[in-house]
Write a protein that binds this DNA or RNA. Structure first.
Lengths: 230, 230
DNA sequence: AGGGCTTATTACCTTTTTATGACAAACTTC
DNA sequence: GAAGTTTGTCATAAAAAGGTAATAAGCCCT
């Protein structure tokens, strides 16, 4: 699942801006509101997958608004993370009479925020990886961790599986070795670009037995492409 | 089984009230106590099927009381879910051998609470599912704690049984060691991940005699999978 | 055709991951 | 409370995977 929308409801410009920045960086699609009223409109027009809500808001307080939201059946499943200043309210928040799914005390690190968002989204089932990815007669089953062609199962190593996963979710497009390294191995790993060649080779060898080694195509001077079309 | 009784032990009125509300809504029959002493009486007069216990209590702390309870043979099977505030204690909960079956960090969503209660009840056998679970020629007899293959029946140890139970009710999907630990042993126990390997080994050894050790499959880099398919 | 560059292929070695047997503590059972 | 189970941990063996370098093969241009 991609394009997870997060609504930030926060009256202080600086904090709101910072939050939006952080969220974008983390791959979310943030929208923002200054108060409950504005937020209400956004929710109506373009319901987000999660709300980051300031405890104190001008007009209707964040808590109050959250409570109302949770009562409406349409929105009751919408996860809410409360943002509070450190202080006396902390105890009350813990009481969770509000129905918030989590809370954070300012100031917090971007890292922690993103981590909590992920946790809440996962808990509420918003992050559902597709169970299966099909492409022609290729099936990559994430849950079962299996790669199947037709009715036969292929034996692939962890890295081969990840590579295949990336290819199948990004078909028909050329990727440089560096891009593949970043996407499949992760930005923080440092290995030779040429190593990619070897892994491509290994993938092809496996696919070869099924006459499908033509799926992994070399684009001379650029990199590799995975495609059902020649 | 209907009319599952749940005892809430929590000193803060607001939270206690909220919990009771949530539990009723979810179809349980909650009773409540403000402290360990009160709880002790209730347990004696009208033993519940599960206890929701606050970590911090006036007088005897929740943890201390839980520990004592677990030592009494009569109550040792009574599942306990600990409620803790987020903070330093969190780590301790996992580490310390309290004997709780699960724990939750406030604040939590009602949904999650109910889900965990169900999970714990199921694990501890309070919720009767099917009496038998069949998969191919495998039959797992819940009541008798027996595994039947074809026409022969064999005894398995408690842990092996639970592991087998989990596998047979969740076939074809890969689980990491951590997931298995959480699901089969419970979230609050702390044992080495590698211990899973040993239990897998033991399961396989049993199945081996019937030529069925291929049911438990290793998925390198991820974990294990139980499947009738290769 | 040949030089220069890019990719393919293979072999090798290191690291990582899993399997297995043994042991001791904890727990049951009689 | 003694004998037998059960279960978690460790040490070690075994297996698989992953990265690199060396060499072969291929492509493109003049």
């Amino acid at each position: 699942m991609s394009s997870l929308k997060i609504l930030v409801v926060e009256d202080e410009d600086a904090i709101r801006g910072m939050l939006i920045m952080v969220l974008q960086q983390a791959g979310f699609f943030p929208t923002a509101a200054k108060d409950a009223e504005e937020a209400q409109n956004i929710i109506h027009d373009n319901p987000p997958d999660l709300i980051l809500l300031d405890w104190m808001l001008p007009g209707i307080s964040g808590v109050e608004w959250a409570r109302r939201l949770k009562k409406e059946p349409i929105y009751s499943d919408l996860p809410i993370i409360l943002l509070t200043a450190r202080g006396e309210e902390e105890d009350k928040v813990r009481g969770l009479e509000i129905g918030a799914d989590d809370y954070m005390t300012k100031p917090f690190s971007p890292k922690e925020l993103v981590a909590r968002i992920h946790a809440v989204l996962r808990r509420s089932g918003k992050i559902l990886g597709q169970a299966q990815i099909c492409l022609g007669d290729l099936i990559l089953d994430i849950d079962q961790h299996r790669l199947i062609i037709g009715d036969r199962q292929l034996e692939v190593s962890p890295t081969e599986f990840r590579l295949m996963h990336f290819f199948m979710t990004h078909p028909d497009k050329v990727y440089t070795r560096t891009q593949l390294l970043d996407q499949v191995w992760g930005r923080s790993v440092y290995i030779e670009e040429r190593t990619i060649d070897v892994h491509i080779r290994r993938l092809r060898k496996i696919l070869e037995e099924y006459g499908r080694d033509d799926l992994v195509q070399t684009v001379r001077g650029f990199g590799y492409r995975f495609s059902m079309v020649d």
